[in-house]
Amino acid sequence: MHVDVFDQFHFSESRVHSLDPRVKVVITVAFILSNAILPDGSWLALALAWLFLLLGNDLSNLGLGFTLKRSLIALPFALVAVSAIFSPLGEPLADWDLGFMILVPTDAGLIRFASIMLRSWLSVQIAILLVATTQFPDLIHALEHLRLPRTLTTIIAFLFRYLFVLTNEVHRIQRARKSRSARLPNVRGGGNLGWRIKTTGSMVGQLFTRSYERSDRIYQAMISRGYTGHIRTLNPHQVKSQDWLVLGISAGMLILIQLVGWIL
């Protein structure tokens, strides 16, 4: 496994890729914020926001449908919002008798549900675009510039750096369990649920002690290579005039989206 196996970065030479990470983070958060404060049922504004997103996809050279493919990740959570359809605040549309309860979908409820789903769908996509066009170490560095506490960004950097190492460790532990868990065909292997949980718990404990001891060695190694409590990067991280321009244009578009959402 390679160190960046978990990075969602997709390499390309594009205008979005070469933007300053800080600018990308700010635009992403502003876009999600803008979606969140749009009133329910402002379809035109949401369509404009979608256009903004497609423009981002297009400029990133990853293809118009790039973020669409991964955007279904939040779908299972839609289940939670389904009950919004039966909000008592609107005009009832129908009467569904399920035997044990009667469900009454209302117009306001339907609008609320659709608005939540669209907002969530758009917001997930811009976050996907952010991590697809920014290498994760650059993203961490950007967060540091944006005044996130150094302690926290360093923890996140280490988390990212050692995630694949420990994932390899997990695979080793799982391989060890598998190689000791032979069973005959059609015969139920292993013990009962309690026994399985105990095994998993021991695996977690084993992983913990291995990680703990490893972090000790890592720290010694880093000290001997001149670590001073700060992770460095070779990327310059300078906000150029082009970045300001993109920031300005994006701000203008988001304000337009808000105006459309609140007036029309």
Binding site: T151, T154, I156, F158, L166, S211
Partner: peptide, 11 residues
């Protein structure tokens, strides 16, 4: 402790 917490987060 900071690198330790990072590795623990990865854990």
């Amino acid at each position: 402790q900071v690198p330790l917490m990072g590795v623990m987060a990865a854990f």
